[in-house]
């Protein structure tokens, strides 16, 4: 049994790419795919696993009139999504449990890297990778070993 967790910093965005990854990982032999995202997603399919959202209220707080400036400022400070996601992931029990049960963690976005880096160091041997190809290779080789 191979459990893949997708750790994504997506927020308020189309989730079609994530859906494609779920299909690819399942096809390659993953028995369970879980998704952790920073914010709520759109275009989620019925058959996709329910994503665990770290900050469901992020949409409300980002209703300012000048989103570009606001997000740019946020990106360059410790209030930015990278740091925000790192703090949320550390405190979120469900997310930590999901990561603890994972065999492979796919880190989907550069914004998720800080949180992933801390989690990877805390967790020890579970591979955290930023390439879908590598995830697919690992899944295929574990399927081959099992066979």
């Amino acid at each position: 049994m191979t459990h893949v967790v997708i750790l994504s910093a997506l927020q308020l965005r189309r989730a079609t790419a994530l859906s494609r990854y779920i299909d690819q990982f399942t096809e390659a032999g993953a028995t369970q795919v879980s998704v952790i995202t920073l914010g709520p997603l759109s275009h989620w399919r019925d058959e996709d696993p329910t994503a665990h959202v770290l900050d469901p209220t992020i949409q409300r707080r980002r209703g300012g009139r000048n989103p570009w400036h606001k997000s740019k400022v946020a990106r360059l400070t410790l209030r930015g999504p990278r740091w925000h996601m790192n703090r949320l992931l550390r405190k979120d029990r469900i997310a930590r449990e999901l990561l603890a049960s994972a065999d492979i963690v796919y880190v989907d976005q550069p914004t998720a890297v800080l949180a992933a880096w801390h989690a990877a160091r805390a967790q020890g041997t579970v591979p955290y990778v930023t390439s879908t190809t590598r995830v697919l290779q690992m899944l295929q080789s574990s399927s081959a070993n099992a066979a």
């Binding site: 890297v113 800080l114 880096w117």
Partner: peptide
Amino acid sequence: TDVREFPRSRALLGSR
């Protein structure tokens, strides 16, 4: 692509 191999500077600064 292995996050564990990233140096601290990459985690803190962001990949870009």
